[in-house]
Simulated assay, not measured.
Amino acid sequence: MLRIHAAMDFALKYLCCLLFISMVGVASWQVIARYLLNNPSTISETLLRFSLVWLSMLAIAYVVGQREHVSLTLLTDRLTGRWRIISSVLMEVLFILFAAIVLIYGGVKATSNSMAQMYPLLNIAKGYLYLSLPVSGVLIIIYCLNNCALLIKKRVPSRSVTP
């Protein structure tokens, strides 16, 4: 379990960094081409939009895996012992349900509905943009199942509390 978690963390961290660096490069090229060369790039805006969606969805999956997502901890901070673990596992189960219904089911429908539409400048199907939804949904479910197992075995602390 810890190996799967570590491997996914490693892959997602470096993939997100690579996407971010490429976005900085494309945005810089867009500025240089527009203002210095007086010849604006036609594909950079579409490529940036595409990259931003993928970066956001992969980063969301990573943050859920780290259990650093935004949540209201008013009740869970007052729980101790077994009840705290139960509430943490319940939160992971809710994430699994959300990922399965919204991200995977809805994402597959959105992907299949938009595969016939093309980005004219990039010459790729718009469905590949929506493919980020089911991919991140699967990653979130894997992370949540792994987190549940670690929580039950008490090998991972409950969500960190910031003062």
Rank of each mutant, 00 (worst) to 15 (best):
S44H: 02
I43C: 01
A100F: 09
L129S: 04
V70P: 00
S71N: 12
R67Q: 09
E45S: 04
C144I: 05
S136G: 07
D9M: 14
I4V: 10
V156N: 02
L37R: 08
Q30D: 10
C16S: 11
G25N: 02
Q66V: 03
F20D: 02
R34W: 09
I43G: 01
I124Y: 12
M57S: 11
F10N: 11
M23V: 02
P134Y: 12
S22E: 01
L2K: 15
R159K: 13
M8T: 14
N38I: 10
L122S: 04
M91I: 05
R49P: 00
E68I: 13
L72Y: 15
L72K: 15
A149C: 12
E68F: 11
Y143W: 06
K153D: 12
L47W: 01
S44W: 00
C148K: 05
L103K: 00
W54M: 05
P157N: 12
K154F: 07
L12H: 10
Q66H: 09
L75Q: 13
L75A: 14
K153S: 15
N146Y: 07
V63N: 04
A110P: 01
I21S: 02
V93G: 07
M57R: 13
L15Y: 00
Y119V: 13
I21R: 00
V70W: 09
M8V: 14
L121G: 09
I101Y: 13
N146R: 11
A61G: 06
A59C: 14
S158K: 02
S71E: 13
S114L: 15
R155P: 08
V108Y: 06
R159N: 08
L72S: 15
L79A: 14
P120R: 11
L19E: 02
R78M: 11
S88I: 10
L133M: 15
S22Y: 05
S41T: 11
S87L: 03
L150M: 08
M23H: 02
R34I: 13
L2P: 11
C16R: 06
T42W: 02
N147H: 06
N38T: 10
V26L: 00
T76S: 15
L133Q: 08
I32M: 05
Y143I: 07
N146H: 09
L90I: 13
A99M: 08
A33G: 11
